[in-house]
């Protein structure tokens, strides 16, 4: 990946960690096409249907989200991101019964992060079934914010919960979703 790209991502993520939701969303949106390019390449290489690629992208995004507390903002984000991607790739291959020693060279991932981003989201990808496995109110909150496009404040008002409670429930739901991605993506 280019140094400029990595620096831009680092800056967005720094602001995100400072609590800037817009910067965080920009970061995730900017990273996603690159993750998609890697995921599709891996799916092709491992003979998986391309429709699985979007699940892989989402698995990586959730992992980036839950592990962003391990990024040291004084360092460039590129190597951090590449290592996260590799971890998910290795885990995926292991679960698919790759067995033995799994080689996903970090340099390959770093290189792929820099190639043409892939913007064409696969509309077939549908994690609806994952959301269905959450319990209310988590499911309701997740639906409201993701599919409904509502904010935390609106959702809290509608469910007669405090904003803090909605945020905590949302965070827990994301952890559950992360576990579900891992059990479902096979």
């Amino acid at each position: 990946m280019s140094v400029a790209q990595s620096e831009e991502w680092s800056q967005w993520m720094r602001r995100a960690i400072g609590g800037d939701e817009i910067a965080y969303r920009t970061f995730l949106q900017s990273v996603t096409p690159h993750l998609r390019a890697i995921a599709r390449r891996r799916c092709r290489a491992w003979g998986m249907p391309l429709s699985d690629a979007e699940d892989v992208v989402q698995d990586v995004l959730v992992t980036v989200h839950l592990k962003r507390g391990t990024w040291d903002p004084s360092r460039p984000i590129g190597p951090w991101l590449a290592t996260i991607v590799r971890n998910r790739a290795v885990d995926l291959q292991r679960r698919r019964g790759g067995g033995g020693r799994i080689a996903v060279p970090l340099d390959d991932v770093l290189e792929t992060l820099g190639v043409e981003p892939d913007d064409g989201a696969d509309d077939l990808a549908d994690a609806e079934r994952l959301i269905d496995r959450l319990k209310d109110p988590a499911r309701d909150i997740v639906r409201s914010i993701s599919l409904g496009g509502a904010g935390v404040k609106e959702t809290a008002a509608r469910l007669q919960m405090t904003e803090g409670a909605v945020r905590v429930a949302l965070h827990r739901a994301l952890k559950t979703l992360a576990a579900l991605y891992r059990s479902e993506t096979t």
């Binding site: 949106q29 996603t32 507390g69 391990t70 990808a125 994690a127 914010i145 993701s146 904010g151 945020r167």
Partner: peptide, 21 residues
């Protein structure tokens, strides 16, 4: 859930709740 929807969800959970240090 489309990836854009997921991103909206993740962004709503802005606060880092689990810093390592």
């Amino acid at each position: 859930m489309k990836t854009d929807d997921l991103i909206r969800l993740l962004a709503a959970d802005t606060q880092v709740r689990e810093p390592l240090g």
